[in-house]
Computed example of a mutant assay.
Amino acid sequence: MNEPFTNRKIVLDTETTGMNTSGKIYLNHKIIEIGAVEIKNRKITNNNFHQYINPNRKIDESAFKIHGISNSFLKNKPLFSHIYLNFLNYIKNSEIIIHNASFDVNFLNYEFSFLNTKIKDITKICKVTDTLKMARVLFPGKRNSLDALCKRYKVISNRNFHGALLDANILAKIYLLMTSGQKSINFKILEEKNKKNISFSNYKNNRKPFFLKSSLKDLKNHKKYLNFIKK
């Protein structure tokens, strides 16, 4: 795990039972879903990681309205302690791409704090890149939520609820656009441009070359200019 990071990037998102801080009160909320999408050589692969997790606690109603994941659905899902090794093997030696990274990183570190393992901070084993911070540099003073970036980059999200794997897929597309300098991909415009961009070999060129001769006045003025710059 101490090997140099490769060009492999993992776009990651989590869903939770709720927010973990309320003023000075720590509410002991847990992760209930992890979704991760692999990018290799700037291409999204089909090598995903997706896992629902039993948090052993109730989900806040406010959180349920966001992701739609119920307590009954998670009842027979594995605990984080049962899946963390698979998760570590998937992300090791990779750069992790997260939107608002501190939220997900804090939750992951909180989960690891309950395990009998040396890993206590995910940033020690993976490089973490926060696309929210990137977006704030690219678009200062604007809204930079994932939904706002979808509209800005014209990425269709098609979602009624948030989901870790769904949001990771969306963020992977956004990240590639953010790091390519493009604001959107309009395939229809590209197609029209390709139709118009026909090579000259497709035309019969029967016209003779046309040369425009300079007048005597132009030649004299040009000679004066050459003499001037020589001085």
Rank of each mutant, 00 (worst) to 15 (best):
I53R: 01
F210G: 02
E111K: 05
F80L: 08
I174E: 03
I98A: 07
F161H: 11
K40M: 11
F87P: 09
H222I: 15
D13P: 05
D104K: 05
I156T: 13
C126I: 08
T21R: 02
N86L: 08
S22I: 04
L79N: 14
F112A: 00
V128R: 05
A164D: 01
F103Y: 15
R152V: 02
S199V: 14
E3D: 09
E192L: 13
L149C: 12
T16L: 04
S145Q: 04
G23I: 09
Y26P: 00
S94W: 05
L166S: 11
I119P: 03
N28D: 12
H99A: 07
N47A: 09
N7T: 14
K9L: 15
R136I: 07
A172K: 00
N194W: 07
K9C: 12
L166H: 13
I53H: 01
Y110E: 11
P4E: 07
L212V: 15
N7D: 15
L85N: 10
G141S: 11
K223P: 00
E33W: 09
N76R: 02
R159I: 13
S102Q: 07
Y225C: 03
T14G: 09
N7Y: 15
K30W: 07
S72E: 15
S145W: 04
Q51H: 05
K188G: 00
N206I: 13
S72D: 14
E38S: 03
D167W: 00
F87M: 12
I39C: 02
T129N: 10
N202S: 10
I32K: 02
N54A: 11
I185W: 06
N89M: 04
N205P: 02
N48F: 15
F161G: 03
K208V: 14
I97Q: 00
D121K: 10
S145A: 09
K224G: 07
T117W: 07
K230V: 06
S157P: 05
M178A: 03
P140G: 02
V155Q: 00
G35K: 06
C126K: 00
I189L: 13
A63F: 03
S157I: 10
S81A: 15
S113Y: 05
L74M: 07
A172N: 03
P140R: 01
F64A: 03
M1K: 02
L79E: 14
F5V: 12
F64E: 01
I198F: 11
F64I: 09
I122K: 05
K217F: 02
K30D: 09
N100P: 08
G181S: 04
H67V: 04
N86F: 06
E95T: 15
H29A: 09
K75Q: 14
F64T: 04
L74S: 03
N56L: 14
E38N: 07
A172I: 09
A164N: 02
Q182A: 11
K231D: 08
N46W: 06
K183H: 12
N46M: 06
F200C: 04
F211M: 03
I185M: 06
L132T: 02
Y52W: 00
C126H: 06
R143M: 12
S215R: 06
L226E: 14
H67F: 08
K40D: 10
K58V: 14
K30N: 10
F73G: 08
D13A: 08
M1V: 10
D130N: 05
